[in-house]
Amino acid sequence: MVLKRTSLTQAECPVARSLDAIGDWWSLLIVRDAFDGISRFGEFRRSLGIAKGMLTARLRDLVDCGVLETAPASDGSAYQDYLLTEKGRALFPVVVALRQWGQEHLYAPAEPHSVLVDVATGSPVEKLELHSADGKPLGWSDTRVRKV
């Protein structure tokens, strides 16, 4: 029996719509790799260890929803590059937030892991925070969703 995936493209909740577009782990890992400079099908495949058919489908979906775009290969070869669009680059804080959450909650205290650093200084990037309009840090209990 094949289960049909429920579309969330018309959901009132922005989180649901976001998950509909980029919510499976392969899509987010492809986006992560694109931020790390990967742009070719074979490079994504080597990095992720993903099956060709699955990678083809995920890349197509990311292009269709405007997160990636295809372009002729930068080296002039017959290949094509998959490049982040403006919409895709806007996912950077999402990927950083997932990275920082994982670092904080999924590693033992002394366990080594990759670290996101500022290119200019080599220093680790500070933890993301939400702030109110007047600059006050906000936690989950300081906010609420105003539903439509």
Rank of each mutant, 00 (worst) to 15 (best):
Y79D: 08
G49W: 01
E86G: 14
S77E: 13
A51E: 06
Q103S: 05
C65A: 12
D75W: 15
Q80P: 00
G88Q: 10
S47L: 02
G76K: 01
Y82N: 10
D64V: 00
R46S: 07
T85I: 08
A90T: 12
E43F: 03
L59S: 06
R58W: 01
V67N: 03
D61A: 05
S47E: 04
Q103R: 01
F44T: 01
L91N: 04
E86H: 11
G53L: 05
R58Y: 00
A71N: 00
G88Y: 11
S74F: 07
S74G: 12
Q80S: 00
V63N: 10
D75L: 10
E86T: 14
S77C: 10
A57L: 14
L48K: 06
C65M: 07
V94R: 00
W101Q: 11
A90C: 09
V94C: 01
R58M: 02
S74E: 08
F92M: 14
L84H: 05
K52R: 15
D61E: 12
L62K: 03
D64R: 12
F44W: 04
R58D: 05
E104K: 15
L62M: 12
L83V: 15
A51N: 11
R89N: 11
T70Y: 12
L98T: 03
A78M: 13
E104T: 13
I50A: 02
G102Y: 05
G76S: 02
R46A: 08
E69N: 11
D81M: 10
A97S: 11
F44K: 02
G88P: 02
E104A: 14
L68W: 05
L98V: 10
A97D: 13
T56P: 03
